[in-house]
């Protein structure tokens, strides 16, 4: 019966299902590389989801929706930035508070927007490329945000590995004292990273409410932000692995639903837990070599910085 699942459609829907967590995880990766742990991803995602939804419905343009979502996510993360970078509040507690705030706030401003259909996000017309057999439906028939997320993986990878700014950002994340001694503006760099993370989480949320579901429902992220956080660790802070992790997680989720729909006789419980099981498995495999895994974790992750200390 497995034969009745069309692998081409499966891969295409896997990419759609994974895009929200991919975007959010990429943003969080940059934040954590700068030495900041922002647990508010879920809150920023859902705020982006409703802000993007409202903007798209009011203007009729999904593009405006995504811009608004990024702005809203960044605005929410600015609260986090002010609290943790200037007032030196505890990052874990502040991040959790941000999630709670985001969920409540989004429910409040989303009151009048339940049950409305957002304007459809058009698929990118890539002409003859879309008509290619096999590769066409998999790669060239998506909405623009899928390509934005993929481009972002490459951009973040290049930025962190190959650019001077990326090197500085990583230096801040490894040892803010050393970076400060060298004259780098630790707080400013971290705030920029936090804003980027917020914008990415907002985009991920808007992808849920504008493309993947597409509607606004309170609490609709349903834990996607936490999965994004886990994927950053899973990926040992590397953009390429974030892509692999997000697609693996999204892929197994979609696959298990497809297997059920196709009537494959595998006990459903195993299918349902498969995404989590595989995540744990990969974590074990990755962390088998302790020294190398620890090497990649930003040394100053979650530590507050003040120039006086």
């Amino acid at each position: 019966m497995i034969g009745s699942i069309d692998p081409i459609l499966l891969i295409a829907s896997l990419m759609v299902a994974s895009t929200p967590i991919l975007l959010a995880a990429l943003g969080e990766l940059v934040v954590e590389k700068a030495g900041v742990l922002n647990l508010g991803v879920e809150g920023m995602m859902i705020t982006g989801a409703i802000a993007g939804f409202i903007a798209a419905v009011e203007t009729g343009s999904p593009f405006a929706g995504f811009v608004a979502a990024a702005a809203a996510g960044a605005a929410l993360s600015l609260i986090f930035a002010l609290l943790t970078q200037f007032l030196l509040s505890n990052q874990v507690a502040t991040g959790l508070a941000l999630t709670l705030f985001g969920i409540g706030f989004s429910a409040l401003i989303g009151q009048g927007y339940t049950g409305i259909r957002p304007p459809a996000t058009p698929r990118l017309d890539l002409g003859p490329l879309s008509d290619l057999p096999v590769i066409g439906p998999i790669l060239f028939r998506h909405d623009p945000m899928v390509y934005v997320s993929l481009a972002l993986v490459v951009a973040v990878g290049l930025f962190l590995r190959r650019s001077r700014a990326g090197l500085i950002l990583r230096a801040v994340g490894e040892s803010h004292d050393a970076a400060h001694a060298l004259g780098y503006k630790v707080v400013r760099i971290r705030i920029l990273a936090i804003l980027f993370g917020g914008a990415c989480a907002g985009l991920g949320g808007a992808y849920l409410s504008l493309v993947r579901v597409p509607q606004w429902t309170e609490g609709m992220t349903a834990g996607a932000g936490w999965i994004a956080l886990a994927i950053v660790v899973f990926a040992s802070w590397r953009p390429g692995r974030v892509l692999a992790g997000a697609y693996l997680f999204g892929g197994v989720t979609v696959l298990q639903l497809n297997l059920q729909a196709a009537g494959v006789a595998i006990p459903v419980q195993y299918l349902s837990m498969a995404p989590y099981l595989i995540t744990i498995l990969v974590l074990v495999v990755i962390s088998a070599d302790r020294s190398r895994a620890a090497l990649n974790a930003p040394a100053a992750l979650g530590k507050s910085f003040h120039a006086s200390s």
């Binding site: 829907s13 849920l208 993947r212 609709m220 989720t253 639903l257």
Partner: peptide, 11 residues
């Protein structure tokens, strides 16, 4: 879980 419900419908 709206996303999962939508995925199930899609499958």
């Amino acid at each position: 879980d709206p996303a999962k419900e939508a995925d199930a419908a899609k499958a």
